[in-house]
């Protein structure tokens, strides 16, 4: 069971059915990133090109250390790339835009330990031009959507890892972004919790219609969650291939993962990652 509250009215956003093809919401053009080190310059990303469709759930998968986090940081405006650009609705991104929200991998460091759960979710809203009542309302709805209505007055360190990550997701949701960028969000939790959180994010996307870009090293997760899978590999990293996931809108941990289409996709992705990684 996923634990999110489907009885909640969706927040004011249109839920787009997957499968329609509107223009890209987020685009990456020729993005390269260089890091300076004592041994010289290191090229981490080399000419990455990507288009993320509005309403889509895009999973970027690749081996650890491939530069996926760097790519996500560039896409979210936290890092300006050495070369290339990121476009949001056609406009270049040079600082974090208001319509993107990020969920970080390390929840224990991205949540503020001196604030309660409620205040953690509320914090970004204080800088948005919304009334106090609206802020409270959004916070309540977001926490309900992730199944944490009862934890509003608790502190992050009093919660389990999975619950902390839910708080981080609620914080992103209350922000009402057009797109949610997630950096290996489920890598630091146990397998059981990971399955729950995966279903949670699917439900949240269905309910609120938000575009999701999720970065992960877990191939199963990428294929299970995504409408499309972008394979990033090599050193320096490039987009190997972009795959459409034809598993339909209804996903289930047990049955979906047993389907032959799933297995085929997974094998294909693994092959892509391994094959070109010589």
């Amino acid at each position: 069971m996923t634990g999110f509250d489907t009885s909640q009215k969706p927040m004011t956003m249109e839920a787009l059915p997957t499968g329609t093809t509107p223009g890209p919401i987020l685009s990456v053009r020729g993005l390269s990133q260089r890091y300076q080190s004592r041994a010289g310059d290191r090229l981490v990303l080399d000419g990455v090109d990507l288009d993320i469709r509005q309403g889509s759930f895009a999973c970027i998968v690749g081996p650890s250390g491939a530069g996926k986090t760097t790519l996500l940081r560039c896409m979210s405006g936290l890092l300006t790339p050495s070369e290339g650009e990121v476009l949001l609705h056609g406009k270049p991104v040079d600082r974090p835009p208001a319509s993107l929200a990020v969920v970080f991998q390390d929840y224990s460091r991205s949540l503020m330990p001196w604030m309660s759960v409620e205040h953690n979710v509320l914090l970004p809203l204080r800088s948005k031009p919304v009334s106090k009542q609206e802020r409270v309302e959004r916070t309540r709805a977001a926490l309900a959507a992730v199944g944490l209505s009862g934890a509003t007055d608790q502190y992050p360190w009093q919660l389990s890892g999975g619950m902390q990550q839910r708080v981080a997701i609620a914080r992103a949701l209350a922000y009402q972004p057009e797109a949610l960028l997630m950096d290996e969000p489920f890598a630091s939790v146990d397998a059981q919790t990971r399955a729950e959180l995966e279903d949670l994010i699917l439900g949240v996307r269905a309910e609120f219609g938000v575009t999701v870009v999720l970065v992960t090293h877990d191939i199963d997760e990428a294929v299970y969650l995504g409408d499309e899978v972008v394979v990033l590999s090599g050193s320096p990293a490039r987009v190997r291939e972009r795959l459409e996931v034809d598993l339909g809108a209804e996903r289930d941990q047990l049955s979906t993962k047993a389907r032959p289409e799933f297995v085929a996709l997974r094998t294909r992705v693994l092959g892509l990652i391994r094959g070109k990684n010589a």
């Binding site: 020729g30 041994a39 010289g40 310059d41 000419g47 050495s82 070369e83 290339g84 270049p92």
Partner: peptide, 23 residues
């Protein structure tokens, strides 16, 4: 694919040799 800022150098970090910059 055309790159918008093809002639922009790697964010102000020119290639420099090893230990000398530290001193």
């Amino acid at each position: 694919m055309t790159v918008a800022f093809a002639d922009r150098p790697a964010r102000g970090r020119a290639k420099r040799p090893g230990p000398a910059p530290v001193i």
